[in-house]
Simulated assay, not measured.
Amino acid sequence: MADTTLQDTLRVHSFASTEPGPRLVVLGGVHGNETCGTVGIERTIAELDSGALTLLRGELTLVPTANPLARRLLQREGERNLNRSFRPSEAPPDYEARITNLLCPLLDRHDVLLDLHSFQSAGEAFAMIGPRDNAGALEPFARATEEGRLALHIGTPRVVEGWLDIYAASLAQRAGGTPADDAALAFGWGTNEYMRSRGGYGVTLECGQHTDPAAPVVAHAAIHSALRLLGMVAGEAVAPPQPALLRLVSVTDRLDEEDQFVREWATFDAVAQGEPIGVRADGRMLHAERDGFIVFPNTEAGAGTEWFYFAVASDRAL
């Protein structure tokens, strides 16, 4: 278990205009080794403090480092992944659960969430959105149009959908086809799933590779784009061309630390059906299930954790 003897403080910056308007919350550093969101948020705070940026209406809350313990350790997690099991608990069993209990009421007070992340492999920035409008049991939702507009205006070349669907399918596959119960599905909840469950909407922005010097620039620009789209600051919100939209269809776990990729993959590398992707420790080869794209290939994944995702072209338009 990680050392939590040092006191950690969740730093929250709130700005409120006298004119009513949308309520936006921006999170950085949900994972401690993802620093681009923190840098982008700190730059925005400095602009607001200096008067270089003026909030014209609504409320803006900025959390530069959502997981102080993980940041202090400079690793993805403190005691566990903060972006899983993200909902309040009466008796929080670990550090991330205690932080979740602080963040959930914060999200409750807002309409819109922008969660800033980065990833381990090489690859371009992209946005992640939730389901289309639906009344199903897994993730009912009625604000897909607004969420899609936010993802579109952020301006990444790709947008990805389908996280909770493939998480539920993965659980069922591991259980031999038995649908997962609510407790198991709750582990798949992150910040955006929680935000949607509270009547809001949210976009996760993956700003690029962890150490890419352009990633903090992407994060900072996205905050400005969201503020302009919501009419919270001056400036016209101009939508870029329609991005390529992909749908996650599967996730593959690393079963053994000897499992290896056949080559160094980058996020959004295209593969053809049957193309080899990786080889298991026992020599079994993993092939692409169909034409598609590798997402989040993680050479540092531990045994029993997500090794890579697989996506295909989506028919959805934002």
Rank of each mutant, 00 (worst) to 15 (best):
246 L>K: 00
277 I>F: 00
6 L>I: 01
193 E>K: 03
295 V>F: 09
237 A>C: 10
94 D>L: 04
297 P>Q: 10
62 L>E: 07
142 A>E: 09
98 R>P: 06
94 D>R: 00
77 E>S: 01
219 A>G: 12
81 N>V: 08
9 T>S: 11
314 S>C: 12
286 L>W: 07
121 S>Q: 02
231 G>Y: 00
40 G>M: 06
164 L>R: 12
171 L>E: 13
189 W>A: 11
224 H>G: 13
180 A>I: 07
225 S>I: 00
289 E>Y: 00
185 L>V: 13
287 H>I: 03
97 A>C: 10
91 A>S: 14
208 G>V: 06
284 R>W: 01
158 R>E: 05
67 N>S: 14
11 R>F: 03
10 L>P: 04
19 E>T: 14
258 E>Y: 04
81 N>C: 11
5 T>F: 11
9 T>K: 07
291 D>A: 12
148 G>P: 03
30 V>C: 03
73 L>Q: 08
24 L>I: 06
131 P>R: 04
179 P>E: 12
219 A>D: 08
47 E>Y: 01
15 F>A: 05
212 D>E: 12
194 Y>S: 04
74 L>K: 13
15 F>V: 05
127 A>N: 09
23 R>G: 11
228 R>S: 09
276 P>D: 11
10 L>V: 08
36 C>Y: 03
154 I>Y: 04
299 T>L: 11
298 N>H: 10
41 I>Q: 01
318 L>V: 09
245 L>M: 15
72 R>A: 12
5 T>Y: 10
264 E>C: 08
80 R>T: 15
115 D>T: 08
246 L>M: 11
301 A>V: 06
69 L>D: 03
237 A>D: 07
285 M>K: 14
87 R>I: 02
64 P>A: 14
137 A>L: 14
298 N>R: 12
157 P>F: 02
125 A>N: 08
163 W>R: 07
140 P>H: 06
233 V>L: 02
128 M>T: 12
154 I>Q: 05
130 G>L: 07
99 I>C: 11
42 E>H: 10
122 A>S: 09
300 E>D: 13
43 R>S: 14
177 G>N: 09
317 A>P: 00
48 L>V: 02
88 P>E: 15
79 E>G: 10
237 A>E: 03
263 R>H: 09
211 T>V: 13
301 A>F: 08
243 P>R: 09
300 E>S: 13
229 L>P: 02
241 P>H: 09
248 L>R: 10
290 R>A: 15
53 L>W: 01
120 Q>C: 04
109 R>M: 14
87 R>M: 14
181 D>T: 12
200 G>Y: 02
40 G>N: 09
95 Y>W: 15
303 A>N: 10
19 E>L: 14
250 S>A: 15
109 R>G: 11
143 R>S: 14
190 G>A: 14
22 P>V: 15
239 A>Y: 01
254 R>F: 10
295 V>P: 02
197 S>T: 02
236 E>G: 05
